[in-house]
């Protein structure tokens, strides 16, 4: 009854909503979150995604930038998204819930993807995205490749070196985060657990300096200036970084839970074993 009323209301407004058959492949998919942008672009058929978030075109954040450049961008506002007449909206857990509630009230199907905090979450979200886009075969293929790549990378050194991901404001990633899983997969021991940090938290610079980790992965600088990132230039941190053979930056490969995290894992592993990475 409600659905019927809504459909009448939309028709009266001159909007022809596709989606009478719920099982049909969505043809006008709008993604409003950087991470769903990238997963969707990896799996979608050509022209199935009609808009991605503006961040998908950011070279610092997006691994799917080249694909995203041809697609109109949105800024996750309900009005802008609704006017695109989507038959599916892909959102992340951090998307403003007001916008999503409004879209749902207007009868737009919304699929919210939880953030990935482990490799298993990446697998789950890949398959879920495949189902949402009706591209399950493609999702299975990407997943099989991901599992094969991960298996090839993983080894467990007897005496793993210590590592820590240190980001703006002194934020470190714990074991129960995706970055933590990446460090572990590359054969490192996450220093965060020594300080009782499980998911993520702030670690004062002096504690980091005194712990002397073998590897500090620093976060990528954003354009413009922020005091939060100023501490990444602190002489004490620079001193730690100078002891490493090279700097490792948590770049766009780290930003979202996509199969591209394995590129970062391979890079970390190469640093540990001293082997050269094939370009």
């Amino acid at each position: 009854m409600v659905t019927a009323l809504l459909r009448v209301a939309c028709l009266a407004g001159g909007l022809s909503l596709v989606g009478a058959a719920a099982e049909a492949r969505p043809e006008r998919v709008v993604s409003v979150n950087l991470c769903t942008d990238q997963l969707a672009l990896m799996l979608a058929a050509p022209r199935q995604v009609i808009s991605v978030s503006y961040l998908a075109q950011d070279p610092l954040l997006s691994v799917m930038r080249e694909r995203a450049l041809d697609i109109p961008v949105n800024h996750a506002s309900a009005e802008e998204v609704f006017l695109l007449r989507p038959d599916l909206v892909l959102a992340g857990a951090t998307t403003p819930p007001e916008a999503l509630r409004l879209l749902r009230r207007l009868g737009v199907p919304v699929e919210v993807f939880p953030p990935e905090t482990s490799f298993q979450d990446i697998r789950d979200n890949l398959l879920r995205m495949g189902r949402a886009l009706d591209r399950e075969a493609r999702a299975e293929a990407v997943l099989a490749q991901f599992d094969a790549d991960l298996a090839a990378l993983q080894d467990h050194p007897a005496d793993p070196p210590s590592a820590v991901l240190y980001a703006a404001n002194g934020y470190v990633a714990g074991d129960e985060s995706l970055a933590g899983a990446m460090l572990a997969a590359a054969g490192y021991r996450n220093l965060a657990s020594d300080f009782g940090i499980r998911h993520g938290g702030n670690l004062p610079l002096e504690e980091l300096a005194l712990a002397q980790p073998d590897l500090v992965v620093v976060s990528e600088r954003n354009p413009g200036h922020a005091r939060a990132e100023e501490m990444l230039d602190h002489p004490a941190l620079r001193h730690l970084l100078e002891r490493q053979s090279r700097e490792v930056i948590s770049d766009r490969d780290w930003a979202c839970g996509t199969p591209h995290v394995l590129r970062a894992v391979a890079d970390l592993r190469a640093l540990r074993t001293g082997e050269k990475l094939p370009k």
Binding site: A168, N169, G170, L205, N222, P223, G224, H225, A226, R227, A228, E229, E230, M231, H234, P235, A236
Partner: peptide, 25 residues
Amino acid sequence: LSPNPYAASEIIFWMLGSLSDRSML
């Protein structure tokens, strides 16, 4: 207006002040 995602949260630093993580510089 800064392109840096952290900049806006720094309004609070300029309003209330802090001395954490300052260096000799």
